[in-house]
């Protein structure tokens, strides 16, 4: 179809405007994080400081607790992502391949867990985990995050399995392989992109979780990144440069995983349209 050149220009302009809107808050984070302290207030609204420095990054990495928060977050999000993906792979396979009596109820249960306010679990969760010694512990967070992410990840894995023809494992089973062997050796390798996407989604979700981490963790030893950053913000003297440098550091893993999963965004968000 021929296009009106005015419309084409307007279209590109609109896209450009939206990209500016999407990137500006991140750009500002970056800008303040490289502004030296003496210019922070005098050049507060300039688009780029007259002089840049990495002093905030150096300070945050060398003299603050942020490396530990970063490591804690990484352990929690990484373990959660791996465990959830394993559990969701087998459960998603069952939902995709078997016709059995409880299937409808399992699906309903998993949908239900996506609908009710998780915030109402905060108090009872604390009461349950506290006598087990799982408050103030990374293990406690991993258990909680794993359960929260399993339903969504199961739907996601199910949608990937649905895309693989059944003939493949049926042929293997006729040749004498058990179903589990067929699943592990033939189907799983074909779902590697799906597994990567699930890992990415769950990692990002665990990396961002705030409210349960605030409730279950007190003190710095087991603090994850959001807990550490928020306690930093509420301190008496606020150092904006350092906070934003820390913020950029927190953004890096999330952005990397975004690149990993962005090809699967459509599939993922449609499978788990219930989740953010």
């Amino acid at each position: 179809m021929r296009r009106n050149p005015v419309l084409t220009v307007l279209h590109r302009l609109a896209i450009g405007l939206y990209i500016a809107f999407a990137l500006f808050p991140l750009y500002w984070l970056l800008k303040v994080s490289v502004t030296p302290n003496d210019l922070l207030y005098s050049e507060g609204v300039r688009m780029w400081p007259s002089r840049t420095s990495f002093e905030h990054y150096a300070f945050v990495i060398a003299n603050s607790e942020f490396p530990r928060f970063f490591l804690n977050s990484f352990i929690v999000s990484g373990s959660t992502a791996v465990i959830v993906t394993l559990v969701a792979a087998v459960a998603g396979y069952a939902l995709s391949r078997f016709a059995f009596r409880g299937k409808y109820w399992i699906t309903a249960l998993m949908l239900l867990t996506q609908m009710f306010p998780l915030v109402m679990l905060i108090a009872p969760m604390f009461k349950i985990l506290s006598p087990l010694g799982l408050t103030n512990s990374l293990t406690g967070l991993i258990v909680v995050y794993t359960a929260f992410n399993v339903p969504f990840a199961t739907f996601l894995m199910q949608s990937f399995f649905d895309g693989i023809p059944r003939d493949l494992e049926e042929a293997a089973m006729i040749d004498g392989a058990t179903r589990f062997v067929a699943f592990r050796q033939i189907i799983l390798p074909l779902t590697l992109p799906g597994i990567a996407a699930t890992l990415g989604f769950v990692f990002t979700a665990a990396w961002s979780e705030l409210l349960f981490a605030l409730m279950l963790i007190s003190g710095n030893a087991a603090a994850t990144f959001p807990v550490g950053l928020l306690s930093f913000v509420s301190k008496f003297s606020v150092d904006f440069g350092q906070m934003m440098a820390a913020g950029i550091l927190a953004l890096i893993p999330a952005a990397l995983f975004f690149l990993l999963i962005q090809r699967y965004l459509v599939q993922g968000l449609t499978a788990g349209a219930v989740k953010g």
Partner: peptide, 24 residues
């Protein structure tokens, strides 16, 4: 067989989401 495959997910959901929900 399907129950074996879904058991880990179901146990996690019941223990970490439904039990606290009822307690709450």
């Amino acid at each position: 067989e399907p129950w074996l495959y879904t058991a880990p997910a179901l146990i996690l959901i019941v223990a970490v989401m439904l039990v606290p929900l009822v307690l709450g």
